[in-house]
Amino acid sequence: MQEIKIENLIEEITSFYDPKLHHFVCLNANDLGENRLKLQWIFTFYNQEDNYQIFWTICSFDEVLPTITKIIPSAIMSEAEIVDLFGVQIKDIQGGLYLDETSPISPLRCSI
């Protein structure tokens, strides 16, 4: 577990991530209420038993978050998912992966 600041996200991930050594599992979001959102970028190590490296931060829903898709292409799915389900804003990531006009807006948020 390592806490990071959202401004430093790109530098932290760039300096840490090596595609041959680390496996990006997913980006996890958890609404803690009172406009606080906990984000966890979860990595594991190839060929090591149950070894996680987790970067976490707490941000608010008003911030525009940076994207790590340029470093890890498969992160686009996780990011598009939390844009849809939590209603956060991520740079260059569009919503609409799961939800339509008839669906509720950001359903996984505690209260709006």
């Binding site: 990006f24 599992v25 997913c26 958890n30 498969s74 686009i76 799915m77 996780s78």
Partner: peptide, 13 residues
């Protein structure tokens, strides 16, 4: 909170 990440999900790119 329950977060489910499945294999096809991250492999689409």
């Amino acid at each position: 909170r329950v977060r489910i990440k499945t294999p096809t999900f991250s492999q689409i790119p």
